[in-house]
């Protein structure tokens, strides 16, 4: 099987040491995920889903082997990992994590400017385009403090996608949002997945209902893969929870 366009995890383990205790957050995980899909990682609290996302995003270390489109990130040094995150990963955090000193447009511009060699004009154009896509063109000059949680998360989605990553990593993106706001954010993510067949989107949630928007559901339990299911996703607008 060709590894092109595929993210693979081979025997990935992550052990946390809490005093004398060892917590196996990930136990011998092996997975192969294709780009162009929305993979929902589902599991209860403590199942290791966020840890899985973190090791894929190279913000946490692990044992084993992770390859993203031929690049074995588990062998990379600190500087290369930074470059990997900059160029290949887009993050959507539970708490939005926008830069409060920048307005919506600047938050998106920051990520594009960092990851690409585009001119200033092109950076602004692309950032504007993505904000339009997430429905925030009118509020592009608003600062995070002037946006609702859902709007902030949509800016975060635009920031993550505008730099054309290979991996879009979403950690409980609706965890802090109301149902309506959450649906809007999920719609944005779903639309982006449709547009970009070269991106693998991994969305971590504990909410069974949200899992319905994914092409693949990876169920985790106590750090192990419980099951992997392929499904036909339903549009996020139709969700209710």
């Amino acid at each position: 099987m060709s590894l092109e366009g595929i993210v693979t995890l081979e025997n990935v383990n992550r052990v946390y040491h809490m005093g004398d205790h060892e917590i196996h957050a990930l136990k011998d995980i092996s997975l192969s995920l294709e780009t162009g899909k929305l993979v929902v990682v589902l599991g209860p609290s403590g199942s290791g889903k966020t840890t899985l996302l973190n090791v894929l995003g190279a913000i946490d270390k692990c044992d084993g082997k992770i390859t993203v489109n031929d690049l074995e990130i588990t062998r990379l040094g600190k500087k290369q990992l930074t470059k990997y995150r900059r160029k290949k990963c887009g993050f959507i955090f539970q708490f939005f994590n926008l830069l409060p000193v920048y307005n919506a447009l600047e938050n998106v511009e920051y990520a594009i400017e960092l990851a690409t060699n585009l001119s200033r004009k092109e950076v602004t154009e692309r950032a504007t385009e993505y904000l339009r896509k997430v429905g925030l063109f009118e509020k592009r000059f608003h600062f995070p403090s002037q946006l609702s949680g859902g709007e902030q998360q949509r800016v975060a989605a635009a920031r993550a996608m505008a730099k054309s990553p290979e991996l879009l990593l979403c950690d409980e993106p609706t965890g802090e949002l109301s149902v309506n706001e959450g649906k809007k954010v999920l719609t944005v993510i779903q639309n982006m997945v449709k547009e970009r067949s070269d991106v693998l989107t991994i969305l971590v949630t504990h909410n069974q209902k949200i899992a319905a928007i994914g092409d693949t559901i990876v169920r985790l339990r106590s750090g192990e893969v419980d099951s992997i299911e392929e499904q036909t996703p339903i549009p996020a607008e139709q969700l209710s929870w």
């Binding site: 930074t82 990963c89 960092l114």
Partner: peptide, 9 residues
Amino acid sequence: TLLTIGTSN
């Protein structure tokens, strides 16, 4: 956040 999205040290 800055480091996560790829800002260098």
